[in-house]
Amino acid sequence: MNPTEFTTRLTRDRLAAIVRGRSADAALRTVLTLVDEGIGLIEVSLNTDDACEVIARAVREVGRDAFIGAGTVVTRDDLLRARDAGATWIVTPVGGDPVAAAVQAQLPVLAGALTPTEAAAAMTAGATAVKLFPASPGGPAYLRALRDPFPDMPLVPVGGVDAELAPDYFAAGAIAVGVGSPLVGDAAHGGDLEQLRERARRFRAVCREEGPAA
């Protein structure tokens, strides 16, 4: 997947799921359940148990039904391991080396930033979109304030985004939301997959209802 394809999919789906778990098998089951519920962008955090194997197995299982990314990529080595496992997009909580490595590898990268300076630097470095992280301290109002000087910057809030807050972030100008525990819950640790399905359906409905990004 190239950066243009990623941006198109992110803007269309408006939701990226974040899977982080203590059990590789449970994490894989979580990924496959999310795909079964129609979620097409799924990040497997590298601090998941045996994360690269989870990514590799998920890529083999889902084919083109979903795009599996790697998250918590903080070094160039992380990037290379994720790429070799088959990750088709990258998420990092920081700028610098992992962003440069992803750009060099021609992988879409959602680069972490919080301040205006960090966000601008991420885009200058070649980020496909900016992961506004952590989003919770400033909330939708902060994202809206960032849109004033950066009206065309693709912003994706991550951290504390639940189904009730997602519409407020969309109204503030987010192109999508990245969601971990409010969506995944304890599924990636071996929790109830039926409850995961219910949460997935709720999030998908919220994202569809909001329509095109502002």
Results as ranks from 00 to 15, higher is better:
Asn2Val: 06
Asn2Leu: 11
Asn2Cys: 10
Thr4Ser: 08
Thr4Lys: 13
Glu5Ala: 13
Leu10Thr: 06
Thr11Pro: 01
Arg12Gly: 01
Asp13Ser: 09
Asp13Thr: 09
Leu15Gln: 03
Leu15Phe: 08
Ala17Met: 10
Val19Trp: 01
Gly21Val: 11
Gly21Asn: 02
Arg22His: 14
Asp25Phe: 03
Ala26Gly: 03
Ala26Lys: 06
Leu28Gly: 05
Thr30Arg: 00
Thr30Ser: 03
Val31Met: 06
Leu32His: 00
Leu34Met: 12
Val35Ser: 05
Asp36Lys: 13
Gly38His: 12
Gly38Thr: 10
Leu41Trp: 03
Glu43Ser: 10
Val44Cys: 10
Val44Gly: 08
Ser45Trp: 06
Asn47Arg: 12
Thr48Lys: 01
Ala51Leu: 00
Val54Thr: 08
Val54Glu: 00
Ile55Lys: 03
Ile55Thr: 07
Arg57Phe: 11
Ala58Ile: 02
Val59Arg: 15
Val59Cys: 15
Val59Glu: 09
Glu61Met: 11
Arg64Ser: 14
Asp65Asn: 15
Asp65Leu: 10
Phe67Ala: 15
Phe67His: 15
Val73Arg: 02
Val73Ser: 03
Arg76Tyr: 07
Asp77Leu: 05
Asp77Lys: 13
Asp78Glu: 05
Leu79Ala: 06
Leu80Trp: 07
Arg83Lys: 14
Asp84Val: 11
Asp84Lys: 08
Gly86His: 11
Trp89Asn: 04
Trp89Thr: 04
Pro93Gln: 12
Gly96Asn: 05
Gly96Met: 10
Pro98Asp: 09
Pro98His: 14
Val99Thr: 03
Ala100Met: 02
Ala102Ile: 07
Leu107Asp: 04
Pro108Ser: 09
Ala111Tyr: 02
Ala113His: 05
Thr117Met: 07
Glu118Ala: 09
Ala121Gln: 10
Ala121Asp: 11
Ala122Pro: 04
Met123Lys: 09
Ala125Cys: 08
Ala129Val: 03
Val130Thr: 06
Val130Glu: 03
Val130Asp: 01
Lys131Thr: 08
Leu132His: 03
Leu132Ile: 12
Pro134Ser: 13
Ser136Met: 14
Pro137Ile: 14
Gly139Ser: 10
Gly139Phe: 01
Tyr142Gln: 07
Tyr142Asp: 10
Pro149Ser: 11
Phe150Trp: 06
Pro151Lys: 09
Leu155Lys: 06
Val158Cys: 15
Val161Gly: 05
Val161Asp: 07
Val161Ile: 14
Val161Tyr: 05
Ala163Arg: 11
Glu164His: 12
Ala166Lys: 00
Pro167Cys: 08
Phe170Ala: 00
Gly173Val: 04
Ala174Cys: 11
Ala174Ile: 07
Ile175Asn: 02
Gly178His: 08
Pro182Trp: 10
Pro182Ala: 10
Val184Gly: 02
Gly185Thr: 02
Gly185Asn: 08
Ala187Asn: 05
Ala188Tyr: 06
Ala188Ser: 14
His189Pro: 00
Asp192Val: 04
Gln195Trp: 12
Leu196Lys: 01
Arg197Ile: 06
Glu198Lys: 13
Arg202Gln: 13
Arg202His: 13
Arg202Ser: 03
Ala205Asn: 11
Ala205Thr: 15
Val206Pro: 07
Cys207Arg: 02
Glu210Ser: 15
Pro212Asn: 13
Ala213Val: 08
